[in-house]
Design a binder for these strands. Sequence first.
DNA 1: CATGGTCTATTTGTTGACATCATGAATGTT
DNA 2: AACATTCATGATGTCAACAAATAGACCATG
Lengths: 234, 234
Amino acid sequence: MSGGLEIQPARRRGLTDEVAENIRQAIFDGSLELGERLNEVDIADRLQVSRGPVREALVQLKQEGIVTMEWHRGAFIVQLSADDFRELAGLRTVLEVFAIRQAAAAATQADLDNLAAAVKALSKAFVDQNDYVLIQLDVEFHDALYRSAHHERLWNAWSSIRSQVLLSLLTKRHASNEYYRDLVIAEHEELLRVISSRDARACEKAIRVHLSDTYDRLVSSFDSADVPPASGER
Amino acid sequence: MSGGLEIQPARRRGLTDEVAENIRQAIFDGSLELGERLNEVDIADRLQVSRGPVREALVQLKQEGIVTMEWHRGAFIVQLSADDFRELAGLRTVLEVFAIRQAAAAATQADLDNLAAAVKALSKAFVDQNDYVLIQLDVEFHDALYRSAHHERLWNAWSSIRSQVLLSLLTKRHASNEYYRDLVIAEHEELLRVISSRDARACEKAIRVHLSDTYDRLVSSFDSADVPPASGER
DNA sequence: CATGGTCTATTTGTTGACATCATGAATGTT
DNA sequence: AACATTCATGATGTCAACAAATAGACCATG
């Protein structure tokens, strides 16, 4: 009875996590405006819970960097500036270089399988899914990468910027359009390849290239326009 | 009226921060046993507050990695293992190399003054203070270093391991005795020097040496004994 | 008209009580 | 005696009401 069960510890979650997940999704899919104030009783009523879990959920989201909280003024959804983008790119690069080196050294076969599955999901969705889904799958590949490093505190550090990274990619998705069409699949396949080869040097190089390709376009998108070149924005 | 006021935003703190600070100090100074369970009503009664702020404070401490929380089982003070030490050393090195490079590039004169003040405080305390104070001042120097990087998210990442680093140094202080006597002052002075010189390469080298000197001794202290070589441990 | 002060409405911060769950002692069974 | 089951205990999770504080409207005054 010891073989391959692979269950997670059946973690029971309280309302706090439930509420946090709801708010998070609402931010990502645009139901909540950027910069908007989050009213505690409003959220509590809407989700049919009391304010306690809502408050704790907001604290959690604050730790993830997608809301800010001020004394007696409440919680606000962040609006990421160009400087924020640069900070995210810089810190993420540092973390991910470390992660991929650890992964190259410590990844198990199961880890490699997960990474391969993530790449496959990405290329499968590539043909008929919209950018929103693609970006989520992209980030999920990097989740698998961090997990392959088997480093709890590194994972926590990634968790504390993950939502911001996702939010930044989603809000600037118009700027990564061509990138996704041209390079995403190939680059992730390359990452999987170099990790499998366990060549730390090649890993570092590959991840730097990948992150540069991701972010150079994004930060420069601040120069040209702060909003999509789109038509009518209400 | 625009010149040099330099006030911090007069931040008002609630009971949550107050409680968190209390518990944190109690952990650091040994009033609370490692691994001990933290009873919410107990703490609330002792500090004359209700359980609300206590719960939020525990969540905060959980984010700092010095307590763990389990569903319906409560909060426990962490006990850092040898693997935890290795994780902390590895991640801290990555963050701090990044920090010192940013600091070398972006530190203002005020930053350098703060760093110098931190070194001075350390060497001043060196003659007549105990290890407990010395270690705190050591960490405060590194606070100043991270602040000099002017990188909000890097600071947050450091914050999320800072308490664990402090706790690990305090609990293993017997292993760093000779180190403090011999090297601490000189190495911190060296760090200040290379930052002032703004030589990124020299900075990286200096911080790697410093962290190696700090941690090599600590992780090896696990091999010899899990507890101080002391006499009767209850 | 601009400036400053007061006041009220709304929101957050905090509290104490109730509901739910985990633990372990006591009991019953094999 | 060993093991499974039941149940009491004490803790955490959640809730609804109260206290404190901010922001904006309103008014007075120069």
